[in-house]
Simulated assay, not measured.
Amino acid sequence: MQADDLQRLLSFKMPYGKYKDTVIADLPGNYLGWFAREGFPKGEIGRLLELMYEIDHNDLGELLAPLRKKA
């Protein structure tokens, strides 16, 4: 994980698919789970999706709360 990844989860939007233009931090858990089963895309998007999956799966969404308040 890179230093600014949590902030990126709140600003990076899905570039394609059913949830196009949805901020990664706001993607539903079942969608993130689908990527976990089928494979995450390569590159930054995949890395951020995988991080968000881990946060969601382990019920750590509160980590993002202070960053949401700043935005």
Rank of each mutant, 00 (worst) to 15 (best):
residue 1 M to E: 13
residue 2 Q to Y: 05
residue 4 D to N: 14
residue 5 D to A: 12
residue 6 L to H: 03
residue 6 L to A: 08
residue 7 Q to I: 07
residue 8 R to M: 14
residue 8 R to F: 05
residue 9 L to H: 03
residue 9 L to Q: 03
residue 10 L to Q: 01
residue 10 L to G: 09
residue 10 L to E: 03
residue 11 S to G: 02
residue 11 S to H: 02
residue 14 M to R: 06
residue 14 M to D: 06
residue 15 P to Q: 11
residue 15 P to V: 09
residue 15 P to E: 12
residue 15 P to L: 12
residue 16 Y to N: 11
residue 16 Y to F: 10
residue 17 G to P: 09
residue 18 K to W: 01
residue 21 D to M: 06
residue 22 T to P: 00
residue 24 I to Y: 01
residue 24 I to P: 01
residue 29 G to V: 09
residue 29 G to P: 04
residue 30 N to D: 15
residue 30 N to H: 08
residue 32 L to P: 04
residue 33 G to L: 05
residue 33 G to N: 13
residue 34 W to I: 07
residue 37 R to F: 07
residue 37 R to Q: 14
residue 38 E to A: 14
residue 40 F to T: 08
residue 40 F to Q: 06
residue 40 F to G: 08
residue 41 P to Q: 02
residue 41 P to Y: 04
residue 41 P to W: 02
residue 43 G to H: 00
residue 47 R to L: 08
residue 48 L to A: 11
residue 49 L to I: 12
residue 52 M to H: 03
residue 53 Y to C: 06
residue 53 Y to M: 06
residue 54 E to I: 11
residue 54 E to V: 11
residue 54 E to L: 13
residue 55 I to T: 04
residue 55 I to S: 04
residue 56 D to F: 10
residue 59 D to E: 09
residue 60 L to H: 04
residue 62 E to K: 00
residue 63 L to M: 11
residue 63 L to A: 10
residue 63 L to G: 00
residue 63 L to C: 02
residue 64 L to G: 07
residue 64 L to F: 04
residue 65 A to T: 14
residue 66 P to N: 12
residue 67 L to W: 00
residue 68 R to I: 13
residue 69 K to W: 05
residue 71 A to N: 12
residue 71 A to T: 14
